[in-house]
């Protein structure tokens, strides 16, 4: 089963290795891992997707917290959230065959970000299934995919999100279970946004 964690970590050398090493030690495969700056100076945000038994979530979160550089861990689980991935896809296309790919891209609300005489590049953002849908359709159409670069999943919980709570409390990693529960009930799902990412596949 896939688990998704959002971890706020200190932005220091070696922290990524420590996190990755933990998963290796637990013999858990990381499916994707994205890292970037968070809203706070000196704090990076990771979204980690991994494949582990359904009951592994607690142990992974608890073990992540044992790393000195980890400030906050959120096991996203079934909580309402927005997940996005960005992909760049380079497709072989001549001026004659381009228009077909343009059409496809439009259906998927993807953008063409580069054109060359023999290829073009598509930028697509969405949930993984949407990206996979586009890739599948390109393949089915006989378009030759030359390169794919994907960021892996990025996740943010809907409504008031965890790191804001942290910030309000100004104590890293001290969030209590009650705070989380309170937040959950305050969340309002946004169907409008959900509709947008639906694309062709569904």
């Amino acid at each position: 089963m896939l688990h998704t964690f959002v971890a706020l970590v200190e932005d220091k050398p070696g922290v990524l290795t420590r996190v990755a090493s933990l998963f290796r030690r637990l013999n858990i495969n990381i499916v994707s891992l994205t890292v970037g700056h968070s809203e706070r100076l000196g704090v990076s945000r990771m979204t980690i997707v991994c494949d582990a038994s359904p009951t592994a979530g607690h142990r992974i979160a608890a073990s992540l917290y044992k790393l000195e550089n980890v400030l906050q861990v959120d096991d996203i689980g079934q909580l309402s959230h927005v997940a996005r991935e960005l992909a760049l896809i380079k497709v072989a296309a001549t001026p004659q065959t381009r228009s077909q790919v343009f059409e496809l891209a439009e259906v998927f609300r993807a953008r063409i970000v580069d054109l060359a005489p023999e290829s073009l590049m598509i930028e697509i953002t969405g949930v993984e299934s949407k990206i996979e849908g586009l890739i599948q359709v390109l393949n089915e159409n006989g378009d030759r995919i030359l390169e794919i670069s994907r960021t892996g999943r990025m996740v943010m919980r809907r409504g008031q999100h965890t790191s804001k709570v942290l910030e309000a409390m100004r104590v890293p990693g001290m969030e209590t279970a009650e705070d989380l529960k309170a937040e959950e009930s305050a969340e309002a799902p946004s169907d409008e946004l959900m509709a947008e990412e639906t694309g062709l596949r569904e």
Binding site: A62, Y65, L71, V73, E175, T176, A177
Partner: peptide, 8 residues
């Protein structure tokens, strides 16, 4: 030291 947040 940050106590383990699940220490409760």
């Amino acid at each position: 030291h940050r106590p383990h947040p699940m220490l409760k």
